[in-house]
Design a binder for these strands. Structure first.
Lengths: 217, 217
DNA sequence: GCGCGATGTGACCAATGGGTCATATTCTGA
DNA sequence: TCAGAATATGACCCATTGGTCACATCGCGC
């Protein structure tokens, strides 16, 4: 619109790269990384198979890791943005995190292929035998955990939540979001658009923040 | 030792079947289902590849589902046994569940391949495009959730924990156990025997039962 | 329009691995 | 000891698929 920082060629190249990644994300999410074929990715992207290698010389694996980058970046960005907007300490801690959880659930419901990629492939590769990939995914998971650990630590410092290890708590919170999504939108039978972010966030927050024990305990 | 209900042939056949399943479990857990080859399974079991088909005519897939059966049976059995031994209502609810969580963590630490099979393959197939497999795994997950939902419902009926949906809470608890294990024994770098069941159970119980909010809230 | 570099393409290649089967070996009962 | 059943085996088959490349096409500058 305003300043053209990219030539037309660069823009088109970017758009084609985008189309390939989108096609690959859908395919990998549906069939799994091993079950997906480059032929199908190429077909969905409306390119010949050879073209994929012009954009991703590393082939199937390079495409997969490019997708991981984007998916994790999205989660880290959402987390960072959310908590930098919140004036921590001014709003009720419980509500701040409840709304965060709701946003995360919405984020993945709107991007189910992202979620499926994490469930199907990332979790498998973290425990895979290729140390390189395992390290990469471990690092990405840590990035997310760190982004969430900061506001948690802050709340702990203010004495609003129990002084546990913020990093571990962050992993637990992320795990609960994933767990809720796995539970709430199971069967890709198609009709599972029913998961309600608010309801899920309420449920998780009630347990994680208030505890299962009755108040009268 | 006492009554021979099985002939020698049947016992030996069972033992060979066992050897094949053990070899397959290790291989699948390490390489993943798709990444594992029947040649390697056969080699680890010290059989020729053809022999596998004498015991599992359905081939690779039949072996995988036989493993799923065993893994899920183990978890359901542990859960049922544990809660049938506990005189619910006589012991402190919090401690009963804390000890259960500790047992589950121990169970999987002692059987890491079982855990890896669930993480790597079950989670992938629940969302897979083969409805048959997805249904099967969904049902197995429900069995576990049901076994845990019963004592939870019982505690709710006694007013000891909040009256939420027991089934959903059961899924959440299972998810937290899995989440802790994923966090606590990452990198199969070999040195990860450090996860402490008691510590993990304390951590999970503190958050799930007492809540993150400080008591003075 | 012309020429050349950039880009697209799909037939092709080679490796892989699940599954089969003819043959060899072992076990059982008489 | 022997016949026949049960079992073990691994060479073989072939469908699949990631990756390659010679060639076709396109588009931009002149």
């Amino acid at each position: 619109m305003e300043v053209q920082t990219l030539t037309r060629r660069d823009r088109e190249r970017l758009a084609r790269s985008r189309a390939i990644l989108d096609a690959a994300l859908d395919t990998f999410a549906e069939k799994g990384y091993e079950g997906a074929t480059l032929d199908e990715v190429a077909e969905r992207a409306e390119f010949g198979k050879g073209t994929l290698y012009n954009y991703f010389p590393g082939g199937k694996e390079e495409i997969l890791f490019a997708l991981f980058d984007e998916v994790y970046d999205g989660v880290v960005r959402l987390t960072d943005n959310y908590f930098s907007d919140q004036l921590l300490g001014e709003n009720a801690t419980r509500e701040v995190f409840r709304a965060y959880i709701s946003r995360m659930i919405s984020h993945f419901i709107d991007r189910l292929p992202n979620f499926l990629l994490l469930i199907k492939e990332a979790h498998r590769m973290v425990f895979g035998d290729q140390t390189e990939s395992a390290d990469y995914l471990f690092t990405q998971r840590e990035r997310v955990a760190e982004a969430l650990a900061r506001p948690l630590q802050s709340a702990m410092d203010r004495g609003e939540i129990k002084p546990l290890d913020a990093h571990t708590v962050a992993h637990l919170v992320m795990g609960n979001i994933h767990g809720y999504l796995m539970f709430a939108c199971p069967r890709n039978g198609g009709k599972s658009a029913s998961a309600d972010p608010e309801q899920g966030a309420d449920f998780i927050t009630t347990i994680l923040f208030d505890g299962l024990l009755t108040d009268a305990q």
